[in-house]
Amino acid sequence: MLLGSIELRDHDVTCAISDNQMNIKDKVDFPLNTPNETFRNIIKYFKNVPEVKAIGISSFGPLELRNYAPNYGYITDSSRPHWSNVNLLGTLKKYLKVPMSFTTDVNSTAYGEYIFSVLQNKPVMSLVYMTISKGVGAGIVNAGELVGYKGSPEIGHIYPKRHPKDQTFKGTCPYQGDCLEGLISESAFQARFNKSYKEISMFNPIWDIVAYYIAQSAIQSTLLIRPQKIIIGGDIINKIEIQKIKEQFQKLFNGYLSVGDNNNLNNYITTPSNSSTKLAIIGNTALAKKIYYSDANIYAK
């Protein structure tokens, strides 16, 4: 059986086809343009592969994920030009006529991590996947199921305790100011230094401050979810920063609970196992397979 994946990101779209073991058989990328042009490219791709039995869709948001809502399947109030109030799921179902799953981009990536662990015979049944770049997003899998009926958990908008050496920066979140996202996102670096995070030396004390804030989000996730693993990715995360986060976590948490396998912090807080694109394809196709077998009314070809 062949399964499809569609992922809409900030500037591009990835369509892919996998077998029922999540092995990727084909993949194509094209720019995110207007909805009409984007829909044409997606539909044309999958029309050429009629053997695809179900498709998983993930997208930037905000999305309406409540299946009882009148606008279920819509991209709602997007900041991206032309993409507000777009019936993403309904349009694709109309033309492709197969069962489809629908979730956020970070959810599909988190679910991909879960499925990849199962495929490797090292199942991680509960995980938190954080991504830190332009914003701060999170997907949570608990007991093999995504958490958050209305959408992805909004870890980026928790309020961390301010670092002693970072008391005056107001933050950049247009809603909350100094929430986690407002303190550590790419826009926060730009506001702090008037240049990109890429230009900031890893010896700069700001990276310890950022690690302090991220470690707090990892602690809150630990206390609320009790996951097997916390995975932190995104553009601003690298090997040096992940080590700083672990050091801050260990200092702040002070051994309150055993975490991970055998209380091994190196296995508990990690970077992603694969690229976000590959994980999203794995997650989307797994969700597509799940809805194919759970859908009581399999669509007629």
Rank of each mutant, 00 (worst) to 15 (best):
P174Q: 03
E51R: 02
P123H: 03
N85Q: 12
Y299G: 10
K246R: 15
S84G: 14
V106Q: 10
E64K: 12
L257N: 10
S273C: 13
V118C: 14
K289C: 09
Y268E: 13
I236T: 06
G90I: 09
K161M: 15
C15W: 00
L146Y: 10
N107Q: 08
K93Y: 07
T76P: 08
V13Q: 02
I225W: 02
L92W: 03
K165G: 02
Q243C: 07
D26E: 15
I232P: 04
S108A: 15
K289G: 15
G73L: 06
I24H: 05
M22F: 05
A188S: 12
Y68G: 13
A280W: 01
R66H: 03
L252R: 09
T14N: 06
S59H: 11
E181V: 05
A300F: 12
L180F: 02
N254H: 12
G139V: 07
A215I: 00
F60G: 08
L32T: 05
Y72S: 12
Y68P: 04
I155A: 15
G73M: 10
V106D: 14
Q21Y: 09
G233N: 02
W207M: 00
A110C: 01
E247C: 06
E113W: 05
N67I: 11
Y197Q: 02
N266G: 06
F203W: 05
L88N: 10
K27C: 11
N274A: 14
K170Y: 04
S59C: 11
N264V: 00
Q216D: 10
P70H: 06
P62S: 05
K44I: 07
N254Y: 09
I236E: 01
Y72M: 05
R66M: 08
R226C: 14
D26M: 12
S187V: 04
K195I: 07
V128K: 00
A218D: 10
T103C: 06
K244I: 04
F102W: 00
I200G: 11
I298R: 13
E241T: 15
S18P: 01
F189C: 10
T14R: 04
F249G: 11
S273K: 14
A286M: 08
E186S: 00
L32S: 00
N85S: 12
N204H: 03
N85E: 08
K165A: 10
Y213W: 04
N33M: 10
E64C: 14
Q216L: 09
V259P: 13
T14A: 07
P31G: 06
P205D: 04
N194E: 14
E145H: 13
I291T: 14
P81E: 15
H157Y: 09
L3Q: 01
K165E: 14
A16H: 04
I281V: 08
K150P: 10
I55L: 03
Q250Y: 08
V141Y: 07
D77S: 15
A69D: 13
T168L: 05
I245T: 08
S84Y: 06
L224G: 09
L32V: 01
G182N: 04
K94F: 01
V124F: 03
N266W: 04
S201L: 02
N85A: 08
Y213R: 08
G148F: 06
K53T: 11
L32F: 03
Y256N: 14
D105W: 02
R80D: 04
E186G: 10
V106I: 14
R80C: 09
